[in-house]
Design a protein around this nucleic acid. Structure first.
Lengths: 347, 347
DNA sequence: ATGAAAGCGCTAACAG
DNA sequence: CTGTTAGCGCTTTCAT
């Protein structure tokens, strides 16, 4: 039964209570070095009695290892990042480490401050989805190992990274659409501060590889939110009336597309198919349920943390983990009803 | 341009570089105490040149204030808690503090470990939604100020707390339903480890206050998830065939109810009205859009952090902040179509 | 198997 | 206005 309002007991209190030196206490606490079993018992008893708990600040100062990790993501309340954060947190916890979490809102200045906070906290390592280009230098200023989250990892070959296989996911989605007979697919692409996501280029490349007409793959930009996805879809409807399907770079925008279709009096998937990307839970609530490419968000969090831990303790090379996506078929995608699409055979 | 791979510069390096004592450096760094402007300039220059950054571990050890806060919630990937966490994080950030975040999954043992980790990290304060009853003692063992999140705050009158006004929210929802003519409303209630939420008792109390028949307010238990809500709604349909509306204790279960209605061949809101509670974004994706009672999740996070900060620096009494809910009307609630409900006038 | 002493980087008296 | 000194709680040589 820990103390009644006094200050936290220290290793010295425990030493006094058990009649040994603080060195001995430290030894039984850390488990290294030989201690007489009877002495150990007495110390353990004193620990229990005093309610002693190691001061991590002192430990960290002395050893140079804070046993704390940092996570910098765009937005904790975005389910994609929340899921990833959850994975990182669970893995960190399993390794007896704590996680400091920050949201940057894609704001370079905020990100800079977060990185500084993490450096000051002397975290053992950092997981980050970089919001801005010039982070390259910022990241290099940092002593602690860094693991990059997401496809921007490619811009930092010197750091390990973990991301989903966007190219494969895009192929999965497009092949499904093409196989169903879609030849005119609108793209809903996100634009981060870094410019366009690799989603567009992968889609374009695969589309042409299939011998299809690039002109029939129009794209509209949005900002990864439902609202912006809805607006962008409306623009797509105007620009490309013959379009039979919409493929969004994330699920939130796809949900927006479903809403936009409904608002335009179109029935999904009868009049228009809608394909998402992420696998976020929200996609299962819509009507029709959202067919999507599931990214292993949680696992990316776990994997990234594993890589970081490896980098911290020296084992573990620089690796770029690329986790596969998975097609989740629900009801928002079907064969196009009419034959209003242009057809081409592959060359 | 910070160093080339050497160890992090310390206050002593800065002192040497600028030709003063470390005390003087500390003074310009903290801004307290008078320093000659020329000296200050030289020190600042040295700080810049060396890329010095304060070691928070040493700072915390010396001052006893780690400038770190802890947050323990059930599940970071649940949008309700993610939104709240976001609020806490933003406020903490604004006060130049970092946030250590943990998920307990309503598991007492995990929660215990998290609390221990926070104590060891010597956080300045803790925000927690307690998962288990016997936390009472656990929370009291903790030196750091505690602010309780959610309605379990009432079980800890000695700690400040922040929560939404569930009673008012329930009134809002029930009055809306009753005003529309509903007299037979199924309740979807969550059960946490602490037993039933106060949702049921508030609903029952208000229902009877309105002179309505308690027998026409059947309740089924679920676990705050879409799936469980769906199953519980199905049971409700069996138990209470005359029911014209379902009122769920959270939005995820309400979404489940919408799915269950659809599966049962019922049209919402024509055949059955569905009312949620939370205000989580997912409710706006469903078809029909979920009418719900919006809880100020983000603001609760902010407010709780404010209270905690107040408790930390001594200003600020123990207060129990109760934030109002707000009815969000979308399309899932309408007047009952038939007259298959029992009617009673208020006494 | 145990203890004494040094020191991680910083702040907070206390002198000058 | 500036420097000296002590010490936060812990680990880690180095003796014994």
């Amino acid at each position: 039964m820990p103390l009644t309002g006094k200050r936290q007991p220290t290793i010295i209190d425990v030493a006094r209570l058990s009649g040994v030196s603080k060195t001995t206490v430290a030894r039984v606490l850390s488990g290294v070095g030989a201690v007489h079993s009877e002495t150990r018992r007495r110390v353990e008893e004193a620990v229990r009695q005093s309610g002693y708990e190691r001061n991590h600040l002192a430990f960290g100062l002395r050893t140079g290892r804070s046993r704390t990790l940092g996570l910098v993501i765009p937005d904790l309340s975005n389910p994609y990042w929340a899921d990833l954060a959850r994975g990182a947190q669970d893995k960190a916890e399993a390794e007896k480490r704590s996680l400091l979490i920050f949201s940057s809102d894609w704001d370079g200045e905020r990100e800079r401050r977060h990185l500084q906070a993490l450096r000051q906290a002397r975290v053992d390592g950092i997981l980050i989805n970089p919001a801005v280009t010039d982070d390259i230098t910022l990241l290099h200023q940092t002593e602690a190992p860094v693991v990059v989250l997401g496809s921007s990892g490619e811009r930092f070959p010197e750091f390990s990274s973990a991301r989903s296989d966007v190219a494969q996911g895009v192929r999965l989605a497009l092949d499904h659409l093409i196989g169903l007979g879609h030849r005119h697919v609108g793209l809903l692409i996100g634009r981060d501060r870094l410019g366009r996501s690799r989603f567009v280029s992968e889609a374009r490349a695969h589309w042409q590889r299939q011998g299809l007409d690039a002109a029939l793959l129009p794209a509209e930009e949005a900002t990864y939110t439902v609202e912006s996805g809805q607006a962008a879809t409306a623009r797509l409807f105007e620009r490309a009336p013959g379009m039979t399907a919409v493929f969004a770079a994330n699920d939130l925008m796809a949900v927006g597309a479903i809403l936009a279709a409904r608002a335009a009096g179109l029935v999904c998937p009868d009049d228009i198919s809608i394909m998402g990307m992420d696998g976020v839970e929200a996609g299962s609530f819509t009507d029709p349920g959202l067919t999507t490419v599931d990214k292993p968000r949680y696992d990316i969090g776990v994997e990234a943390t594993c890589l970081l831990l490896g980098a911290i303790d020296g084992t573990g090379d620089t690796v770029h983990a690329v986790l596969p996506c998975r097609l989740v078929e629900r009801a928002s995608v079907a064969a196009p009803s009419g034959l209003r699409t242009v057809r081409k055979k592959s060359a």
